[in-house]
Design a protein around this nucleic acid. Structure first.
Lengths: 210, 210, 210, 210
DNA sequence: AATGAATGAGAATTCATTCAT
DNA sequence: GATGAATGAATTCTCATTCAT
């Protein structure tokens, strides 16, 4: 069953090659410092070729965000669809994010640091993409409220931001923990330990289980 | 007791004038889109003059961060020094941050959105300044642990990031809540209500008190 | 008697197809704004194919000029060969040009406006082609002088340029008369009326006959 | 009586310097082939400086056209205001143009050849500037008609284009007469002789005086 | 100290042409 | 002959910073 013709395949390969080269280079230099020439060179194509697949340097960042983020969202939706307990759903959401980012650390750096260096960060499009993720969380929280698992007075619209922010904080810690700036600190950051702490806090607060 | 000579005073005034002009302009346009000429014009001085007080455009952002952030830190330290209960200290920290940002919304936008658009974000210096704030939180958490108020197994190095991230999430919500992209949503964001939600979650988790 | 083989014929058709597509596109966008890709698309062939028939984009313009202009010259020569009166010859020359351009307004625009936007305008080749036309006029003028119809002191080398320029002025008027810039003017340009004015002026000057 | 301050004067000098350098370079290479870097170098300033005085390369051409053309128009208007005979006025107009271009041959080349290579040629602005000149001619022709000097049936709207085109033809001849393409021709073009021919033709047509 | 004109390095993007298939 | 993906040279304009006045 051949889905793609040879030339389609070639195009797809090249597109992916360029996208991956862009990811590596954006991460290595940061978005603004990355020169188009460098991406092309990294991908082993001419600069012009790059513009056969993407309309601009920023489009490259947007495409990267779109594809990778879309993949995460899809995976999360698929995972939590099998679960009924809101607590398990939240846990699944977080593990999925953590796993995803562990598998591709560059992605975490790109999303946490570089995506904000571009004007696309404030685009409606990007905001809506992030909102998708927030909406999943809010849905779970609402479900938990209606099932009597979460407190009745929980403001889910705020809570989702708290959770999102907290997760961001964790990821930022992780990213920074290996940056040169904090490398010399003795503290060894463990993403799994951090996720556990996060879960504990949201489960029962800072105060002990008692 | 004269501390500053007249010319010193004039210099300080001009420095402050420029700094405030920079703040307004950075907030209005975003850091990368802000032209030095615009800051100078906004401050009513020549471009060259600006360089008598700051070594570069980035230095301006750094100075802004430094002074404003430093003020917040100092204020927080002063406030919590009178308190003994870690919970109250945490609350004081948050209210202080919220009040500070409420008073100067531009500052919130700058720190939440623009500060990351500059490479100074990853500077050791900036990280250390943020670390100062994180250390205050960690100190309170550690104090709470030793006093038996917080759970023994709380990973304070992670928890401080969670708290910081959560606070960032709240502030980002607030900033975005009035962006054009989400303006049409009916949800009216209240910083106070959000702060309460944050406190509740950290106090006892998502699950209800009882 | 077969002059062209089937494949020759096909080739000629394609050449003509491309040439006509180029004419339409040059006229629509102007020479510099016309992209080779657009001509190819308009002609329904691949970009590469175009280079099997023409060596460059400029060559396309040159060929267009050559063929169309050559056709006009040939037609003119044929028409005036039957006439003996220089005045009638001049008139025939003008009517022929006017008719030619009326039939293909795009051609007029291309020759009046776009041909000058290419460096080929100053090519020896192009100049010589224009010179061909000028020489026909000069020939008629000389004939008129020797027949005693035109004044003895007429500088035919100058006069031919005057006539050529005047005709250009008329054509330019006509082209511009429908440009947006002058469309709102009430003046409705008539190419025939203009030709008559031209003839009258050259026949007896600005001053009235009597 | 000091009209300009020192810095104004400096700015004006530099503006003029750049404008003249642009004129020389446009003429030498043609507009499209002229690189901004070359103009800057020719003017002895940095490239950036050029953009302190003109907003773009095209603006430079426009300014050149504007100032030089405006000067010609103003001079012509001044000259013919003292005359009452339409024939003398027409003659004055032509001599003025010829003198102007003789004094600055580069200008003639620029206006006849290069100005059309830019899209500004079809700008409303440029067309209106040219229309100014045409209107002067039309005014004289109308005056001649009402004074009974020119034929009653003269279509002045067409005639002005004929005259303008004829003048253009003359100037083009002159410009081309020294181009490499026709340099080897024995014909030595005389602008004065050409102007006389032009006048004769318009005065009494191609046919002799009597 | 203040000025602001001058600087010039720096980079994204276009598009005619080529050539492997 | 036809294709169209790949090429990469080539160029304008920006703007933080400098420095002569």
């Amino acid at each position: 069953m051949k889905i793609f013709s040879k030339s389609d395949q070639r195009a797809i390969d090249k597109r992916t090659t360029i996208l991956n080269a862009a990811l590596r280079t954006f991460v290595k230099r940061g978005y603004p410092e990355t020169k188009v020439a460098e991406i092309a060179s990294e991908a082993g194509v001419a600069e012009g070729t790059l513009y056969n697949y993407f309309s601009s340097k920023e489009d490259l960042l947007l495409a990267l965000f779109d594809e990778k983020w879309g993949g995460i969202i899809a995976e999360i939706k698929s995972r939590i669809s099998h679960l009924s307990d809101p607590n398990r759903k939240l846990k699944a959401i977080f593990s999925q994010v953590v796993m995803m980012f562990r598998k591709n650390r560059q992605l975490a750096e790109l999303f946490m640091v570089d995506i904000k260096q571009s004007s696309i960060f404030m685009n409606n499009y990007t905001i809506n993409r992030i909102a998708e993720f927030l909406d999943i969380i809010e849905g779970v929280l609402e479900e938990g409220k209606s099932k009597g698992i979460y407190r009745k007075d929980l403001d889910t619209r705020v809570a989702k931001m708290v959770i999102f922010g907290a997760a961001q904080g964790i990821l930022l810690s992780w990213v920074l923990s290996e940056s040169t700036a904090v490398k010399n600190q003795t503290f060894k950051f463990s993403l799994y330990r951090a996720a556990k702490t996060l879960k504990d806090i949201f489960k029962s607060g800072l105060v002990g289980e008692k």
